[in-house]
């Protein structure tokens, strides 16, 4: 469970996140909002790359802000990036092993890497170089990296960007299966409302760094304020 209390971030005179308070407890939650709403900034605060000027964040009751980004990774926080970050000259397996090196014990590294590879279905291309993976496989590598070790919170930033409908559906099934298989909470940021509707039990909507709505995804997406601000309906 993620608890955010009166969180504010300031970049010079701009406040991309302004007095945000929210609690996300669903196994798979969504984070949406128009461009510039503060979604990626919030993700960066959660992963430790941006320090807020005030507020608090707790993951399963443990305060996150005192932890460095590295400590957060070791505490089970995983994230993917908007632009996939597969290393071209490492194999698919080594891309995952690179994370296992740092978050799993020596005896556990191989097992956790193989488990993640099997889960995302990359076993057959495990020894293929990153440069030779197609986009879907690269997205799966990114997802697989998030499953290494003992993940507790997985932040997925537009995980289905650029995928076909068929690939998106497969990715959706995988994301939905993560909480049960790995015991981790997942937060998905995406502009694809249908993806959010399909996999997220609850959704937080940001607008100008403030909370516009939070609750069951269907309820939130039907909210007139959300439709006006985010979906462009008048």
């Amino acid at each position: 469970m993620i608890e955010i209390e009166t969180l504010s971030v300031r970049f010079g005179g701009i406040k991309p996140i302004d007095q945000l308070t929210a609690m996300l407890s669903a196994p798979v939650s969504g984070l949406i909002g128009p461009n510039g709403a503060g979604k990626t900034t919030l993700l960066n605060v959660l992963s430790g790359f941006v320090r807020p000027v005030e507020g608090a964040i707790r993951l399963d009751g443990r305060s996150l802000l005192p932890l460095s980004p590295l400590q957060r990774v070791r505490a089970g926080l995983r994230r993917s990036f908007q632009t996939e970050q597969v290393v071209e000259d490492l194999t698919a397996r080594d891309n995952l092993a690179a994370l296992a090196d740092n978050v799993a014990s020596v005896g556990e590294r191989s097992r956790t890497t193989d488990r993640a590879l099997d889960f995302v279905g990359l076993g057959s291309v495990a020894h293929r170089l990153g440069a030779r993976l197609n986009l879907f496989e690269r997205r799966l590598v990114e997802l697989g990296k998030c499953l290494i070790g003992t993940p507790r919170l997985i932040l997925l930033d537009e995980p289905a960007a650029g995928l076909t409908d068929e690939e998106g559906a497969r990715l959706r099934d995988l994301v939905l299966a993560i909480p049960d298989a790995f015991g981790a909470q997942v937060v998905v940021i995406d502009h694809d409302v249908e993806l959010i509707r399909a996999i997220c039990a609850e959704t937080l909507v940001l607008d100008y760094g403030k909370r516009l709505a939070l609750g069951r995804t269907e309820t939130v997406l039907a909210d007139p304020d959300v439709r006006r601000a985010y979906l462009g309906e008048l």
């Binding site: 996939e84 071209e88 000259d89 440069a131 030779r132 197609n134 986009l135 879907f136 076909t164 998106g168």
Partner: peptide
């Protein structure tokens, strides 16, 4: 989502064999 299958991301072209370090 795209309806066309994207084999390789446009921003990351396939590296020529020699530019890929294969230990």
């Amino acid at each position: 989502m795209n309806t066309q299958r994207t084999l390789v991301p446009a921003a990351v072209p396939l590296a020529p064999e020699a530019t890929v370090r294969k230990p």
